[in-house]
Design a protein around this nucleic acid. Structure first.
Lengths: 210, 210
DNA sequence: ACCCTATTTCAACGCACGTTGAAAACCTGC
DNA sequence: GCAGGTTTTCAACGTGCGTTGAAATAGGGT
């Protein structure tokens, strides 16, 4: 509530918007996708209305149906394109000595999410917990592209268990830092977190679990 | 969509439901609370409609307003009554040698959430991520009753940081096990998790973070 | 220039939501 | 057994949603 979408692009003329095809440079399909990513991130699936997305894109709500066929389809197209380039991220993680993978994980995770403010992280969690269809998609996605690559790179027993333990610590750090915001972890600098958390990740990766 | 609430309690008589006060034994206020907890857990705040909650309770939707004053108030009453008795839980955690607090944390956490299926845990997360008002309440609650007591019991530097690190690992384990359900962690038995996670918790509690 | 088609806005539909006021059924105290 | 209050259902309201069909406007081909 109490939040209005700023749509005015300056002109305060009272004439209705012109219809018909836009001037050359515009691409409403791309504008809708960008707006959808923003609004889905801010409000979650149910909270993000087609009308607000269209308003953000500066376009009529009917365009969502015309270009994507409906809200559901737009959501699929928009969200499944959101995830950061996970493969490149895993490359960076695995590139280097195995003894410092934990440290690189902490640095990369914070390096990715801190600059964009953690909002998208909270949105991802919101999607996972509130929209079963997308939860399944994201689950499969993470398991296949992230965990599987790490697992096959490690030459240790119980690789799958180690990978999920790893995920639990990273995910938990994200929850505390970006979603529930417990201090002082939420405001701690990278070096502090690396020194505190990396050794525990390292133990999950290559240490003795049992 | 495509999901109907089964409300029929057997009789297929076409006569409308009788009005007026119920027969003696019933307590619709309690029935609404129970139904609300279930439906809020299953669908989240926005997804849980007043009508579906009332239907689950076998009662008219207007009862929500009559007994609680509205959906918002019902949500507050229902959700804020969910949390397990945290104080008793902290007692159990701190009762014993400091060297095995980590192990007791894992055992107690799993002992609490596993029997109730993890659904309420997912609901808590859903509440935190989708409803700011409740997020604040829960945040204050956890910080004051859980973290503060552990912090004052520990005689170590950086107690607050240690407490939040602890929370990150426990919370993350809950997310992986109950919400996103990554295997094999989601199905691992308690002993496996104790051996894997407890040492890391113990390091956060009493180890060297520097 | 002219038609044709793609693009866009507009107005309206149907639906589901939370909420409300009044009527009906029940219980309690006298 | 009747009066008064409590509990419950019912019907309706207003709102906002996603979606739809038609009208309006622009560009592209010939």
């Amino acid at each position: 509530m109490t939040h209005d979408d700023g749509v005015n692009t300056g002109s305060d003329q009272t004439e209705p918007k012109r219809r018909g095809r836009r001037a050359g440079g515009e691409d409403t399909k791309a504008a809708l996708l960008a707006a959808a990513r923003e609004v889905f991130v801010e409000r979650g699936y149910e909270g993000a209305t087609v009308r607000s997305i269209a308003a953000r894109a500066g376009v009529d709500a009917a365009m969502v149906n015309h270009w994507f066929g409906g809200k559901e389809a737009l959501f699929a197209k928009a969200v499944l394109q959101v995830p950061v380039d996970i493969n490149a991220l895993v490359d960076r993680l695995l590139d280097g000595p195995d003894e410092s993978i934990g440290e690189r994980m902490v640095r990369n995770f914070i390096g990715v999410w801190d600059p964009i403010g953690g909002g998208p992280f909270a949105a991802m969690v919101r999607s996972v917990t509130s929209h079963d269809q997308v939860a399944d998609v994201l689950r499969g996605f993470f398991v296949q592209t992230l965990l599987k690559r790490i697992v096959t790179h490690l030459d240790v027993p119980d690789a799958e268990l180690r990978a999920t333990l790893l995920a639990s610590q990273i995910f938990g750090m994200g929850m505390i830092r970006y979603v529930v915001r417990f201090e002082p972890l939420a405001s701690a600098d990278v070096e502090t977190l690396v020194k505190a958390i990396a050794p525990n990740l390292q133990r999950y990766l290559t240490g003795d679990l049992g």
